[in-house]
Amino acid sequence: MGLPRPISEIKKDLDSFVGSRIRLKANRGRNRIIESEGVLESTYPNIFVIKINERKVERRISYSYADILTETVELFVCNNGEEEIKIANVND
């Protein structure tokens, strides 16, 4: 297991994937886990925004980079169908 990455590095990684399809797995507490797909819409200094289209409704969800660091949120970037890249909080 490696050392935790600084939040600035996690932000840099996400900056390179703005506009990409993202698969999201978020732990909302009390055994509530949300899994959905959307597009990484934008990144800001403290948060990032994912646009999700579900049941003909467009919503935007924002999370902080600390959520990735604490593994409350797991992000997978969808590449050409089957291949996925996990945005992780540790150096491999």
Rank of each mutant, 00 (worst) to 15 (best):
G2H: 13
L3N: 14
L3Q: 14
P4W: 05
R5G: 10
P6I: 02
P6M: 04
P6V: 04
S8A: 14
E9G: 07
E9P: 05
I10H: 08
I10P: 12
I10S: 07
I10L: 13
I10C: 09
I10A: 06
K12G: 11
D13I: 08
D15N: 12
S16G: 05
F17D: 01
F17N: 02
V18S: 00
V18R: 01
G19C: 03
S20E: 09
S20M: 11
I22L: 03
I22W: 01
R23P: 01
R23D: 08
R23N: 07
K25V: 15
K25D: 09
A26P: 02
N27D: 15
G29K: 01
R30G: 01
R30A: 03
N31H: 07
R32K: 11
I34S: 07
E35F: 12
E35P: 14
E35T: 15
E37M: 02
E37K: 03
G38D: 01
G38C: 01
G38M: 00
V39D: 02
L40G: 05
S42L: 02
S42D: 03
T43L: 09
Y44M: 04
N46I: 12
I47L: 07
I47K: 13
F48M: 05
F48D: 03
V49F: 02
V49H: 06
V49M: 11
I50F: 02
I50W: 01
K51S: 06
K51W: 00
I52M: 10
I52T: 11
E54H: 09
E54I: 05
R55W: 08
V57K: 12
E58W: 00
E58G: 02
R59D: 07
R59G: 03
R60S: 09
Y63S: 11
S64M: 03
S64W: 01
S64F: 02
D67L: 11
I68A: 12
L69N: 13
L69R: 15
T70R: 15
E71W: 09
T72N: 05
T72F: 00
V73Q: 02
V73P: 06
V73M: 04
E74Y: 13
E74S: 13
L75P: 05
L75F: 04
F76L: 10
V77E: 10
V77C: 11
N79W: 03
N80P: 07
G81N: 15
G81Q: 13
E83Q: 12
E84H: 09
I85Q: 13
A88L: 05
N89R: 13
V90H: 10
N91P: 08
